[in-house]
């Protein structure tokens, strides 16, 4: 520690970055870079977690504020298993899911603009007993208009969340990708801002999941920071496709 400049204590660059991230002082692109690294670099993650633990006692100074009473209901609606939709969907034949998966992958690689949704019932046990209905995964591949696969999405009904995984790197710094669903020619409804720069899961409000069904169109537009100011897509549409049940 000798010979360090008085203005800046000696730290490794990684430790300084971990500190800045834990403190919350980084800008958006830097945060994204850190979060990408956290997924693959356990040593760096340990540095970040050490700083988070050091700073956590500061939170004791923050007065608790009771959230509104109805907020739990909103959370419960998103975390409870939704009513089964399997009855409305054609039961997949045995092995159909994997065939379908191969199909949509193939379509994506072939440059199709279609977003294909595979409805996978895991070993259907019969048409009744909805309480014991197996979870259905919805898988979609979204491609750009030039056919470049952009990202895949997996909807887990038990969690009420959609996991997004980018197929290609994209640079949308300073802009906000927003996911839309268009049903029967109605105006697009926002499914919220999404992160297409790294694999992540995106919680979609439960009431909007009803639009995620065969025949609907999914689209991603690039909006100003914070999302579309009008409630409708205003920026370039970078990916689109029709949902098709297989």
């Amino acid at each position: 520690m000798s010979g360090e400049p008085p203005e800046m204590p000696e730290m490794t660059a990684d430790d300084a970055l971990a500190m800045d991230y834990a403190l919350g002082a980084l800008d958006r692109p830097s945060r994204r870079n850190v979060e990408t690294r956290l997924r693959s670099d356990p040593a760096f993650r340990a540095l970040v977690e050490a700083w988070q633990a050091s700073l956590a006692p500061l939170d004791e100074a923050t007065a608790p504020v009771a959230p509104p009473a109805d907020l739990w209901e909103r959370i419960a609606a998103e975390t409870a298993p939704p009513a089964p939709v399997r009855a409305a969907a054609p039961a997949p034949s045995p092995g159909g899911f994997w065939q379908s998966l191969a199909v949509w992958r193939g379509l994506a690689l072939a440059g199709s603009i279609a977003a294909v949704v595979a409805i996978a019932g895991v070993a259907p046990r019969g048409p009744v007993a909805p309480a014991a209905a197996p979870p259905q995964l919805l898988v979609a591949s979204l491609a750009a208009s030039d056919g470049t696969p952009l990202l895949s999405a997996t909807y887990d009904p038990l969690r009420g969340s959609v996991a997004l995984a980018p197929a290609t790197a994209a640079d949308h710094r300073g802009r906000s990708p927003e996911l839309w669903v268009i049903v029967d020619g109605q105006p697009p409804k926002s499914l919220g801002l999404i992160d297409i720069d790294g694999a992540n899961a995106h919680a979609i409000p439960a009431e909007r999941l009803q639009g995620l069904k065969p025949g609907a169109t999914l689209a991603i537009s690039i909006e100003p920071q914070g999302g579309s100011p009008t409630g409708l897509p205003t920026g370039p549409v970078v990916a689109t496709g029709k949902l098709v049940a297989i």
Binding site: G24, T62, P64, V65
Partner: peptide, 11 residues
């Protein structure tokens, strides 16, 4: 939730 809401509200 009250603790987390307090943290979020400050930001």
């Amino acid at each position: 939730s009250a603790k987390l809401f307090g943290i979020i509200l400050r930001i």
